[in-house]
Simulated assay, not measured.
Amino acid sequence: MAEGAGDSAGGGDPEVQRLRRLFRFFAATQCRGRSPVYEALSEGVAGDDELLDLLMSAPGEQRRPSLLLAAVNLLLASNPGSALAGYYPIHGGRRPVDGRLMPAFAAFCAEHRAELGRLLRTRSTQTNEIRRCVALRLGLDHVHRRWPGPVALVEAGASAGLNLLLDRYRYRIGGQEASPEDAAPVTITCEVRGGIPAEGILGPVPEITCRRGIDQHPVNVADPGARAWLEAFIWPEQVGDLAVLRGAIDLAVSAATVTVAPGDATTDTARLLEELPGNEPVVVFTASLLSYLTPDARTAFAAQLRQAAAHRPVAWVFAEAPGLVATTDHLIAPDGPLARRNSLYLVGATLRDADRRDDALLALADPYLRWLALAREKTDDFQWLPANAG
């Protein structure tokens, strides 16, 4: 079906219309400037009811552009000679985006429709963008300044738990090295915007007494199939990111110091925190978790943190869309233009114990932490950062 044909054909289904809008939003806010292939494909899928119908076989909460694109990418790894693979540098392709991309995508989906349907019915969105460790380190530094000493670390929505190994990676922030003392096999890079010197942005990592994750569908990186599914969420042009992910996975397999348990962040987080040994503060990290939760579920997650903080100090460090942070009980919740800048992510921290709480906005960043802009004041609205900063 030609691009745009789906706007009128079969367009009366509200779910199809929702998916159409979602793919166009994804193209404009996530793909533009980052992936010409996925931008073109997302726009094309938005106008093709047959391709949108593929995603209807997925559970309602999993009907996302990233799930369809990852399922196709997984199958492409076994079909590197296909016409579509020629557009994917991660599969050795070198062809630039042109008018044949969408026909190649549609033909590949038609040829593998049964396999795609099975993947979409049974798999879930599963990413581990370890650049978000930069946000975690910013938050840990903020916590450590207020609560010196060791901390326990928990990630809600941890996937494979790779972010829990944050102190095993090398960092290059704004071109400045910020590395562990020993050689690290994985390097995380992040640009700095706003004219603030990059030197010293990341403080030393405090002692971490234990590392735990919780996820509805934890990824066992020792399983080749699970590893391949995680790699399928790397975008076509991100050859370097694929190498970084593979290095982090290899490190996780060899380290064997991280545990990710199955569970729901909205009902099981407080129990997990109460089961942790010791009484040192717990830092709970989330990145993109709120986008997977309904408004009621976001309220329930915040309640889990309040419940746990009645027993020991708890800090929530996050990298989330500003508009979604505004729906939680964060005291310095963004409003006005900042709350609408959901193509970017807010990095912040909320510290709680039985008697007090402290909320802070730390930075505004690219959703994948390719760059960040540090807050200039506690209630910064970031209006000084250009609207097209993405």
Rank of each mutant, 00 (worst) to 15 (best):
M102N: 06
G11E: 13
S343T: 09
T29M: 06
A160Y: 12
L119Q: 07
S124P: 13
L140V: 03
L120S: 12
A303E: 04
T189V: 14
H142D: 14
L346P: 00
C190D: 01
Q304S: 03
P80I: 03
F318D: 02
W371K: 05
P262G: 08
R34T: 10
P65F: 07
P386G: 14
R376V: 09
S159N: 11
A152D: 15
E50Y: 13
F108R: 12
L75M: 07
P295H: 06
Y38M: 04
A106P: 06
Y171A: 01
A27G: 00
N73Y: 12
L305S: 01
R113N: 12
T350N: 15
R356D: 14
I90S: 08
D366C: 05
G92M: 05
A303S: 05
T294G: 06
L138R: 08
G47W: 00
V37E: 06
S35D: 12
A158M: 15
C210Q: 14
R340T: 11
Y87F: 13
L166V: 14
V347L: 03
F108V: 11
E191Q: 07
L84Q: 01
E111H: 13
G225Q: 11
V97K: 13
A375Y: 02
M56G: 14
L52I: 04
A83S: 08
P313S: 04
N220P: 10
V134D: 01
R340Q: 14
Y345T: 10
G247W: 07
R212P: 03
L116C: 06
A178R: 00
D335H: 14
L101P: 01
L164W: 00
M102H: 07
I196C: 13
L165Y: 02
E274T: 07
D13N: 13
R146P: 15
L140G: 01
P65N: 14
E207D: 04
P224V: 02
D296L: 15
A71L: 05
H112Q: 10
R172E: 12
E191C: 07
P148G: 15
G278A: 01
V154L: 04
R63G: 09
Y171G: 00
W371N: 10
G240L: 03
T294A: 13
A135T: 00
D380W: 01
A309R: 03
A315L: 05
G6F: 07
G60R: 10
R146W: 13
L54E: 00
G11C: 08
G157A: 04
D241N: 12
Q126K: 08
S66Y: 10
N220E: 11
A310V: 11
D358C: 08
P14T: 10
P80W: 03
F25E: 09
D359H: 15
A297P: 10
S82V: 10
A321H: 09
G139T: 15
L351K: 01
E43I: 11
G81H: 11
L153F: 15
T379I: 14
E377G: 12
V151I: 04
D380Q: 04
T259I: 13
A106D: 07
G348H: 00
R212M: 11
